[in-house]
């Protein structure tokens, strides 16, 4: 097995729902969906975000979109106009999740990403 960041095999988008953020995590292929479905758990997401998520994390599966949806409760410092955070709407949480590492088989072929910048 080798470790890759979710960025290599998935897309994401996040937004706010009150004081919770949500992150949609979309696999780039059916094979990648099997990997994220097994590897990216509610507990794992909560641990990954550390102190940012003060509440629980809910998780929903959408096999039709090769996607998972996460709700990060109590993660926006009050949310809406109450929050003092620079990112009061969790717009950046999706990018944060793509930094999580998961294990894939050694022969797992990563999607072609020729236009991607070096750093």
């Amino acid at each position: 097995m080798k470790k890759v960041k979710l960025l290599e095999i998935a897309h994401s988008r996040s937004g706010d729902k009150g004081d919770s953020s949500n992150i949609g995590l979309i696999a780039k292929s059916p094979e990648a969906y099997e990997i994220i479905k097994n590897a990216v758990t509610s507990e794992g997401v909560k641990e990954h975000f550390g102190g940012i998520v003060k509440g629980r994390v809910d998780r929903y599966e959408l096999p039709n979109l090769l996607a998972l949806n996460f709700i990060l409760h109590d993660s926006l410092g009050g949310g809406g106009s109450q929050s003092l955070k620079n990112d009061a709407q969790g717009k950046t949480h999706g990018q944060g999740l793509l930094l999580m590492s998961v294990e894939v088989p050694d022969d797992f072929e990563l999607p072609n990403d020729e236009n991607r910048p070096e750093i």
């Binding site: 897309h11 988008r13 937004g15 706010d16 949609g24 929903y60 979109l65 996607a67 949806n69 709700i71």
Partner: peptide, 27 residues
């Protein structure tokens, strides 16, 4: 798909005044 999941709660129970949508059904 990214936009379908934007600001999404429980995908099978998306409530509007007009209907309740199951986002798990979308092809």
């Amino acid at each position: 798909s990214e936009q379908l999941l934007y600001e999404m709660g429980e995908p099978s129970n998306y409530i509007t005044p007009d209907c309740v949508v199951d986002f798990g059904s979308i092809e």
